Structure formats: C-alpha cells, structure tokens
Amino acid sequence: MVSQNIRRRSITSTSSTVTTVQVEKDGAKSSYSYIKRGVQLVTWEHLPDWQKDNEHILSGYVKETNSIKACLHSLLFIHNESVNIFSHLVPAFCFMTTIIFDKYVVERYPTTTLKDYLMLDLFLFGAFTCLMMSSAFHCLKAHSPYVSSFGNKLDYLGIVVLIVSSMSSILYYGFYDNSFLYFTFSAITFTFGLSCAVVSLGERFRAREWRPYRAAMFVAFGLSALLPIFAGFLYYGVQETTIRVQLKWVVLEGVFYIFGALLYGVRFPERLKPGMFDIWGHSHQLFHILVVVAALCHLRGLLGSYTIVHTRLSSLTQ
C-alpha cells in the first residue's frame, strides 16, 4: 500500500501568495510551489517536455505561461532564470548608455573623427544587441514552445552580431594604415557571420542532424579571428601586431568566452550536486557573467588600440 503525506505551507506578501506543496510517497519527496497572478513555479518533474533542458536544475522553473504579461511579471520575483536575465539586461543598458554619451566617456584626440565613434559604437551596439536578445529570450522562454524557439534563434543571432561587431572594430585599428587587409578580413568576417545567421534562423538547420554542422560553423567563425592576427604577424611583426590589437586583452577575452562555454557545456557545477545551484550559481549563469567579462576585455583592448593609433597619428601632425 502506497503511503502519501501532503503538506501545504502558504506565505503571503504584499505582492503575491506563494504556496509550497510537498508530496511524500514511500519515503521519496518532491515539491513544487506556485505564485498567483498567473505565474507558476514548478520543479523539473512538473515541466512539459519542451521546457526540459538541464536535468541538474531541479526547481525554480517558471511553467508555461502563454502570456507576455505573466513572463514580464516574473521579473519581479526570484526564479532560476532571474540571474540569466539581469546579468545581461543591466550590462546591456550600460553599453547603450555608453553609446549615447560616447563623446563624453571616450578621450578625444586631435585626429579623432566621426568614424572613430562609429567604430567604437559598432562594438557597443553589438554587445547591447547580444545581451538584450539573450535577456529577452530568458525572460520570455516560458511563454510557449513557439516563442521559446523563436527567442532561441534570436539569442544565437545576437551572438553572431557580437562576434562580427567585435572583430570589425578591432580590425579597423589593427589595420588602420592598410585598407586592403582591413577590407579583406572584414569581408571574411561578414561572410562567416552571414552563414552563421542563416543556420541560426533557418528552421531546416535546427534539426538534430544539423547540430554538428551548426557547432562546426560557429567554431570556424571563432577561429577565423586567428587569420588577421597571423597576417599581422607576417606583415608588421609579432611585437607591433600585439601592440596594435592589444593582443593580451583579445586573448583574455577568448579565454573567458571559451571557459564560460566549457562550463555551460559540461553543466558545472550543478551536475556535482543537483538542486544546490538551482537559483544561484549554475553553469548558464556563470556563462552569462563570463560573456560580460569577455566583452569588457574586448572594450578595454579596443579603447587601447584607439589610443595607440591616435597617439601615433597626433605625433605625426605636430
């Protein structure tokens, strides 16, 4: 005979009522909670199949809402996507604010032109686009299978935009005195970017059998950043290229991106103790934070390249 004990505990706050239900069957416990006003938090076993992605995250899920309003309401309380949302939403607005006030936050040299601001803003806009699309996806992914799938496509597209804008901006200063190399590698970057955008948005390429090809495309896109560096080594020499593109910051940027992706891929640390990192500290959150750190490394390197180029140009005009 199956023994079953049910315990119910309600906590009322100024904004909502949270009810926690614990069910015990033959010594095994499971629980779920829900918040009224149309937003329900559930555990892994109560999710529809389309929402299941990481079996090591056991609780704190916003169940399918079919409501934009309910998804937006989830911004007002803590669940297992909260850190994913705000870790990209807040930096996105910081990048956008920098675009608006770029003439006040970027040091101006006698040789600085409108094109410099456009190239700096190109990266800032790419970072804003990537982070905002990611934040929107994590906020709205509980809406429905269609919205989640579409948001996931835009999330990948944001990554493409960030890579293209990052590479194009640093190439501009790395090859500021060689238009041929700049336009050649910019064309390669845009070609890879367009290809990755197609496989990200095309429904046909999202099938399971296309997964290895999608992954290979993004890996090739990332590795294409090595081409202009090697070209710079041959044309300018290692030391000069290192200075021009602020290579230490570019390398550090790559380390953070790769380390974050590795954590996300192996589901660390939540795979070590499922349930412990449901709300704080799971791999996707760490990945998001490292993406922001990597973007800041690129910004630091880009501003360094801008400073070096215009310091040299200004000295020539004196």
Rank of each mutant, 00 (worst) to 15 (best):
H56Y: 15
S169I: 00
T43G: 15
Y173S: 01
L140Y: 00
L234H: 13
S179W: 05
S148D: 11
S10Q: 13
S87R: 01
S283T: 06
S186L: 14
Y182D: 09
Y61P: 01
E107R: 07
I78Y: 11
K273L: 13
A187W: 07
G281M: 02
I35D: 09
E81H: 09
T43W: 04
F268C: 12
F185K: 07
S31W: 09
V238Y: 15
F218G: 05
F218E: 08
I100K: 11
A207R: 13
S166I: 02
M119Q: 09
P91W: 05
T14P: 07
R7H: 14
G301I: 02
T129N: 09
N84D: 00
F192V: 10
A142P: 04
N178P: 04
M133K: 01
V106G: 03
D53W: 05
I99M: 13
M276G: 00
L120A: 02
R8T: 15
R211A: 13
L303M: 05
I100F: 11
P145G: 05
N178W: 01
A142V: 03
S3Y: 11
E81R: 03
I6A: 05
N178E: 04
Y34L: 12
Q22V: 13
L201K: 01
V250D: 00
T112V: 01
C130T: 07
N5A: 10
T17F: 00
P110Y: 08
H73Y: 15
H143S: 07
L120D: 06
S166L: 05
I100D: 08
S305N: 07
G158Q: 06
K52C: 06
